[in-house]
Amino acid sequence: MKTYIKNIKTKVLVFVLVIGLPLQMCSPIDDDDCNCGVVTGKYFDINGMELKNYKKVGENSVNLMIPNEAVSYEKYAGLTVEYSVDYISQSRPKRPSFSLIPSAYACSCIGNGDYGSKFEKLSNITVITLNDFDETHKANDTINDLILAKGFYNQEDEYLQNYLINDTTNIQLPAIKLLVDRKPTLDENYKVKVIVELSTGEIYQNVSESIIIR
């Protein structure tokens, strides 16, 4: 009889562990058990853009430049195209409230726009100098051949023309960094117009503040 009761207790304990563990694991995909905070939307939709020049400060930091500020080319960190976005969600099926098989959900919070653009791919970027840059790139000429698309995180820097060919996925980040590969030789005032064309047919353009690159 004691053996029978012991076996029953063992079975109950196993059942509680099998059923209880998945219920206590948290997955912020469907709820906020992990205390991640409210997420407006896991995807973003581009609705505009701004252009900002940055300079290097120390080894791993940059500062926003002000109009007409002078910087050596070695200290120039590039022009960032910063997209203004709306955040949008996508409904997902809820996972079962319990399972007989333990689940390995872990807390990993998701922020606004972490899944990238829901619909948009980058079709083209055109960079136009508004001042005489050098002997072969005069005012109102395209300077795409001089522009590097600076890699975020583990991405490699790549000339813009190649980047546009190789980048075939939906836009993953709400910004792209553009660095001219040399300093101007005719007019040290660096000012450009940037035109961004998206796969959805949207076209955005803006003009950067003038800075001095020496």
Rank of each mutant, 00 (worst) to 15 (best):
L23E: 03
N53E: 10
L130D: 00
N140S: 03
N131Q: 15
Y204D: 09
V16G: 04
P174D: 00
R182L: 03
I195F: 06
K193I: 05
V12E: 01
G20F: 00
A104V: 11
I5S: 10
I66H: 15
T142I: 08
I66E: 15
E209A: 14
I8W: 10
I203H: 09
V81C: 13
P102F: 08
G113E: 08
K75V: 03
G113A: 02
N47W: 09
V38G: 08
K183W: 07
D114F: 10
L146R: 04
V180Q: 05
A106I: 12
I176P: 02
T126E: 08
C36R: 06
K2T: 06
I101H: 00
K11R: 15
D167M: 11
P102A: 10
P102N: 04
Y115Q: 07
L164S: 07
Q205P: 02
S103E: 00
A175E: 15
E158G: 08
K56P: 07
A175L: 07
N47R: 02
T126D: 02
G201Q: 03
T3Q: 15
K94I: 10
K94P: 08
Y73N: 09
S117A: 13
V14M: 01
C34A: 15
N206H: 01
N131R: 15
L146N: 09
Q155Y: 06
D187L: 14
L178Q: 12
M65P: 08
N131Y: 12
N170A: 14
F98H: 13
N60V: 14
